[in-house]
């Protein structure tokens, strides 16, 4: 689904290559400043990096902005809403769905009681849930998530991971940045380890996380 070769974005990324197939849930780990977010933004088409990025065998630069919008979803680490919209309004704007689906999705994400709340009154975790719900409503084929578990309590962390897991079982692909290696071990099909702008290890969690000493500094971070 997504493959990229020799991505360079000076000075952050150096010769990064990899592939992400349909049905795969890959967790990306690495210390702060390793280049995780930059790689994610590059793959989302937000940064003009050198190298080749193919989405469904077509170069990313040849996709139209609308085509890409329905194909891949992207969650920034700090999603924001400048104007003070209600939760329902945000889902209506971002979700591209009918009101029935908006209502249904709000119930699933436990946002129904908050539907008339204004975004600026919500906690960080609640805000994160709103944007996650919007992304899943858009139902893209590829999801790029920058620290989706940030601010969420353990219950909702499990819920998000379950959602992502079910999502990939439908043949969709997810690449997400995590700091909690235990979560990665339990839920992900694959792990990518970033270090100093390079993708230094790729494999299943059991292979990668046990073999690599880099796992340690990752755990210490944050």
């Amino acid at each position: 689904m997504l493959s990229f070769h020799n991505i360079n974005f000076s000075p952050v990324l150096r010769d990064v290559s990899g592939t992400l197939g349909p049905g795969q849930f890959v967790g990306m780990v690495g210390e702060n400043g390793a280049g995780k977010t930059t790689l994610l933004r590059t793959l989302a088409g937000l940064l003009p990096a050198d190298g080749v990025i193919l989405l469904d065998s077509k170069p990313l630069s040849q996709w139209s902005i609308a085509g890409l919008a329905s194909k891949r979803g992207y969650l920034t680490a700090d999603p924001l809403c400048f104007w003070n919209l209600t939760v329902a309004e945000v889902l209506d704007v971002a979700g591209r769905s009918t009101l029935e689906i908006v209502a249904q999705e709000m119930r699933q994400w436990h946002l129904w009681p908050l539907r008339q709340s204004l975004m600026h009154q919500l906690s960080s975790g609640e805000r994160m849930r709103v944007f996650l719900a919007a992304l899943f409503m858009r139902d893209p084929d590829l999801l790029l998530l920058d620290e989706p578990l940030q601010h969420l309590d353990p219950l909702f962390q499990e819920m998000v991971l379950k959602k992502v897991h079910d999502f990939t079982r439908r043949g969709k692909a997810v690449l997400a940045v995590f700091h909690d290696l235990e979560m990665v071990r339990r839920w992900c099909d694959g792990v990518w380890v970033m270090q100093k702008g390079r993708l230094v290890a790729q494999g299943t969690p059991s292979q990668v996380l046990q073999a690599l000493p880099v796992a340690k500094p990752c755990q210490l971070v944050e």
Partner: peptide, 12 residues
Amino acid sequence: SFGVDTAITMGT
């Protein structure tokens, strides 16, 4: 309203 990055990934 969601910022430039998110807006781009949502099609504008």
